[in-house]
């Protein structure tokens, strides 16, 4: 059954030494660019790691395109790609060998994977380095290799955790262009970022997380309406975070 939601999270909870995600409900429509914002330690990465299958939730459900990610993780992972701020690349493999390995893990036909890998290598400007081992690559090049790995199996949901950290302007532009094209072709992108201009320009929906809870969600216009003035996303974000801190302080005082 096809779901209108690429991601549907309900009652999600996770604690480490303290609660990190608290009764979270979140819906992301198929084919949209969703930015998840929040201050450091808000719980954004924990939420996305649970969706990607890297962490077990304490409670709640995660559905990816209608697939219960906890009951059938393999089926969910088949259509998800995960890109973290630390590129998951092997120093001793070349970008092409890395893409061949990823294609093997996602059971992509070898010929189709090779064609697609070469397209991605060209698209991301990695051709001159396609046969060099990744060990000597810069952070930007490693991130592009990791992104190529995420795209080589044609995912329907791409989850990116701070993918632009440490990238130069040129590499960041390339990554953003790739993501825009993917969204235009119907792929869903969920991304956390501290670069609010990127979220402001690229995201159709924005969610703000603080202290493990979704404190606000909507389009940029809806968020502006919520705080009652025409301003930048940065101002909105700081307002929402400050409001939540004030609420928590009041709760604690009471």
């Amino acid at each position: 059954m096809l779901s209108q939601y690429a991601l549907a999270i309900s009652g999600l909870r996770k604690s480490f030494d303290r609660p990190v995600v608290i009764d979270l409900d979140l819906r992301v429509k198929a084919g949209e660019f969703y930015a998840l914002l929040g201050p450091n330690g808000a719980g954004k990465t924990t939420i996305l790691r649970m969706v990607a299958g890297l962490l077990k939730p304490d409670a709640g459900s995660i559905s990816v395109y209608g697939i219960d990610a906890q009951r059938d993780p393999v089926a969910a992972k088949q259509i998800i790609a995960w890109v973290s701020d630390e590129p998951m690349v092997y120093d001793r493999l070349t970008p092409l060998e890395y893409l061949e390995f990823v294609a093997g893990l996602w059971r992509i036909d070898a010929r189709q994977a090779e064609r697609h890998a070469n397209e991605l290598i060209d698209w991301l400007g990695l051709r001159p380095h396609a046969n060099e081992r990744c060990g000597g690559f810069s952070k930007g090049m490693l991130q592009k290799v990791a992104l190529a790995g995420a795209l080589v199996h044609d995912p329907r949901l791409i989850i990116l955790d701070e993918p632009l950290t440490g990238l130069d302007a040129g590499s960041a532009r390339q990554v953003k262009d790739v993501l825009k094209q993917k969204v235009a072709s119907g792929v869903t992108v969920i991304m956390t970022t501290h670069i609010l201009e990127v979220a402001e320009r690229m995201a159709e929906h924005i969610g703000v997380i603080n202290h493990g809870r979704l404190v606000a969600e909507g389009t940029l216009a809806e968020l502006r309406a919520r705080i009652g003035r025409e301003t930048t996303l940065e101002e909105i974000f700081l307002d929402l975070v400050a409001q939540k801190e004030a609420d928590l302080a009041a709760e604690a005082a009471a």
Binding site: E100, A103, G104, R107, A110, E114, N131, R133
Partner: peptide
């Protein structure tokens, strides 16, 4: 930082099961 090692040659992708891909890696 500076060392670049070329792979010996470019060869076509091979059909492999998931487990074989992991073993070869």
């Amino acid at each position: 930082a500076a060392r670049v090692q070329q792979s010996a040659r470019t060869r076509p992708f091979r059909k492999a099961s998931q487990r074989h891909a992991l073993r070869v890696k």
